[in-house]
Computed example of a mutant assay.
Amino acid sequence: MVTKELYIYGSAFGLPSLDANCLALIAYLNIVSYGEYNIIACNDAALSPTGELPMLYDGKNWIAGTNRVIAYLSKLGHNADKSLSQEMKAKSVSCQALADETLSDALLFSWFADDENFVGTIRKAYSNLLPFPARYYAPIDMKKRAVRRVQKYGGAIGSSGSLTHAEHTKIYDVARDCYRVLDRRLAKQDFFLGDSPTTLDAKVFGYLALQLYPEIPNPRLQMILTSQFPRLAAYCDRCRDRFLVSVPSPTPLPNIAMVSFLPSFTNPLPSLGSWSPSNWLGGRFFKSAPPAKEQGEGQQEKDKDSATAKSLEQRDFERKRIFAIGLGFLAMVGYVIANGLVVIGTEDDEDSGGGYYGDEDSLTLEEVVLLSEDVDEDD
C-alpha cells in the first residue's frame, strides 16, 4: 500500500504543476528513484506547516518546502549529489542560488507584471485550480506580491496595482545573462555537472519548463531561449522526457472548497495562496481607475477593439469576484461563531462570573501539530 504523498500546486500547460518548486521536487524524486508515491493537487499553501508547497508526507513525517524536503531525503540516503566532489558541490550551490533569484524573478515578471500574459492566460490557469471563492481573489493577491518583488528591475507600480512603463525593465537582460552562465556550464554535457542529473538539474528544470512550454500571449522568455540558447531548450526537452515520464497523475484534494478563505490556526504564515485578514479585505471593494496610457493616435485606434472586449470580460470577472468575497465573508463569520471564537455575553453573565469571561479554564483549544524533522540547518 502506497503511503507516501506529495502535495503540490496542480497541473497546467501540459506539466504536472504550474509551480517551479513543485516541478523541481518531482524531478528530484525521479533522480533519486524515490519509489511509489501519490501526488495530491493541494493548491493551498495554508495547509502546509511552513506556509509553502510542495509538501511531502513519507508515512511518518510532514516536510514542506523544496529545500527542506531535499535535505531530509538526503539524510535518509536519497542524495542526488552524493557522487560530487566538494568543489562541484560548491559550484552547484552557486548556480542554484542564481536560478532561485534570477530565473524566479524572470518568471514572476513574465506571468504577473505583464498584464497581457496575466489577464490572457495566467489568471485563468490559477483560477481553474483554486476552489470558490479563492479563484476570484487569490490570483490578484499573487499579482500584487509579484509586482512588488520585480519592480526593482524597472517600471513603477500604478494605482491599479499593475507595473507601468514596464518596457524599460532590465529583467530580460538579467535573465539572458543567467541563461548564458547556465549554457556555458552545460556545454556539451547531458547535464550541468556531468552525465548524471543532480539537484542543480532539478532546480533549473523547474524554472526553464515554465518559461519554455506554456503558451502565453507574450512569450518573450521562450523566444530568448529558443533563438539564442537552443542548447538550453534542448536540455529542457531532455529533462522533461526523463523526469516526467513516470510521474503519477495528480489527484485533487477532496473537501477543501472552504479551506482557502477560512483562517488557518495551524499555519498562520502568509503565502501566495493563503488567507489573511489584511490582504483579504484590503482593496477589494474600491479600486482606482488605471492611469491613462501615453500613446499616439494610431496606437489608440489599434487598441480600441481589444480594450472593449477586455473591459466586458473584466466587468464580468469583477462581479463574480465581489460576489465570491461577500460569500466568503459570510462563511468566515459563520465559522467564527460556530467555533466559539467570539462569545456574546450579557452583563449578568459577567457579574456572576459565568461564561467564558468568568471561568478561564472552561475554554480549551485543541492544537493540531504536523510532525516534521528540523532540517533547516541543512537548507
Rank of each mutant, 00 (worst) to 15 (best):
I171K: 10
N79H: 08
R149E: 11
T226W: 01
V204Y: 02
S271D: 04
Y72C: 00
I31G: 03
A146E: 03
Y335C: 11
L371Y: 13
V369Q: 09
P252R: 15
P214W: 01
V174P: 02
A202L: 05
S74R: 13
K75H: 06
Y72E: 02
F317A: 12
K75R: 15
S271V: 10
A97R: 12
V245W: 10
S352V: 08
V375C: 08
D201L: 07
V69E: 07
S274V: 10
L163E: 09
D376Y: 10
K152Y: 06
E52W: 00
L330C: 07
Y213E: 09
G283C: 11
R238T: 06
P230E: 08
V342G: 00
P133Y: 04
F243R: 05
L281C: 11
N67V: 05
A156D: 15
R185T: 12
M332L: 11
Y207G: 01
S372I: 00
P219M: 06
D44M: 06
A106K: 10
A46E: 02
L210D: 00
D58Y: 04
P250I: 07
E36C: 05
F261S: 09
A20M: 09
E167T: 04
S159A: 14
G345W: 08
I63K: 04
N38I: 09
D177L: 13
K203I: 14
T198V: 02
S276E: 08
L193I: 10
S288L: 15
N339A: 11
L272R: 09
A90I: 09
I122S: 04
A90H: 11
G345V: 13
L108P: 03
T121K: 07
Y335T: 03
L130R: 01
E167I: 02
R145T: 11
D359W: 00
L130T: 00
V204N: 01
L25V: 08
G355W: 07
N128R: 08
M223N: 14
V375N: 06
Q189C: 10
N128T: 02
R238E: 04
G51R: 01
D361V: 14
